[in-house]
């Protein structure tokens, strides 16, 4: 009796998974045979069956690029910066917004800060360039304090900072949505209880609000870890120039420039595969660590 019920329950769950799994099989797993292109010299006209096998040549080539380590370092530094600040800023913003009681102001602020997300980097880049112009607001400000103007976007000391900063600025409003949603899930009773205990606003924040959204924070940061090798092609492509290649050239911009010389699908696929392996490993590790230390299963 119990067993049958269990089984029928299992079937119910399987049936619920089925529609989505069918889509995943057709549109994710079937196309995955394309991964073999990473081990070929793929020529579109010859198709996958007709293209020549080259083994690990495409991967070996990555190591032969004279500044492959430099490109890798730029990618990781920029991506890491974006992950760290792109997590902290939205959380702080969401927590601050949560302190506001004026409903219309809360909603308006929320709506405005999420708007930059909808402008493409091609558009935003023009604005960023103007802001950092010699005669732009930032340099005018510096000059008012007697500093020399700085060409931020052509400075290897500043380029990554500007990239991370402008990315955080563009996306924090959108990133905050998930935390704002999580904040709504906190039991108001907890606030009442703590205020009866005499906790002030800051103490409430620390002992009620923050723990309330901690699972969401851990979940989002773990999923973001999967982007450790994605530094953001559109943004960097729109903002970089040859002077800052040494600090700003990342995997994706490099692959793009290689691709310009002809359709180099194999090389791009090999890089993509490598990125996937790294992301997959990191994500699995993050999940394991999270289970072990926080007793929280992310997925």
């Amino acid at each position: 009796m119990w067993k049958r019920k269990y089984r029928s329950g299992q079937l119910g769950y399987h049936l619920m998974m089925a529609p989505g799994m069918i889509f995943l099989i057709i549109f994710s797993f079937v196309p995955m045979f394309g991964i073999v292109m990473a081990f070929q010299d793929y020529v579109p006209a010859k198709g996958i069956l007709g293209s020549q096998w080259v083994g690990l040549t495409n991967f070996e080539y990555m190591l032969q690029i004279p500044d492959s380590w430099n490109i890798l370092r730029n990618t990781v530094l920029i991506a890491l910066g974006k992950i760290i600040f792109g997590t902290i800023v939205p959380i702080v913003f969401a927590l601050l917004l949560n302190e506001i009681r004026l409903k219309w102001a809360k909603r308006s602020i929320q709506t405005i800060v999420y708007l930059p997300n909808f402008l493409s980097w091609a558009v935003v880049a023009a604005i960023v360039i103007n802001v950092f112009d010699y005669h732009g607001p930032i340099n005018s400000f510096l000059q008012a304090f007697g500093h020399q103007p700085i060409m931020f976007l052509a400075s290897n000391d500043w380029f990554r900072t500007v990239i991370i900063g402008s990315d955080v600025w563009k996306n924090f409003g959108y990133g905050a949505i998930v935390y704002l949603a999580a904040l709504t899930g906190i039991d108001p009773g907890l606030y009442e209880a703590s205020s009866i205990d005499g906790a002030n606003r800051f103490q409430q924040l620390l002992h009620v609000t923050f723990p309330g959204i901690l699972p969401t924070i851990m979940l989002i940061s773990a999923l973001n870890l999967g982007n450790i090798l994605n530094a953001g092609f559109d943004q960097i492509y729109a903002l970089y120039n040859p002077i800052v290649y040494e600090t700003g050239d990342v995997i994706d911009t490099y692959v793009y420039r290689v691709g310009l010389l002809g359709q180099q699908y194999s090389f791009a696929t090999a890089i993509g595969l490598l990125k996937s392996v790294v992301s997959f490993t990191l994500l699995i590790a993050a999940n394991k660590l999270s289970i072990k230390f926080a007793n929280l299963r992310i997925f």
Binding site: M21, L24, I26, F27, S28, F29, V30, P31, M32, F33, G34, I35, M37, P44, I48, G226, Y265, A268, T269, G272, L273, S276, S279, F280, L283, I284, F299
Partner: peptide
């Protein structure tokens, strides 16, 4: 399986063909 599907892809040509 889903995490795998989220992170790995065969690139745009096979998907296009499908």
């Amino acid at each position: 399986v889903m995490i795998f599907a989220m992170l790995f892809s065969g690139g745009m040509i096979p998907l296009f063909i499908v």
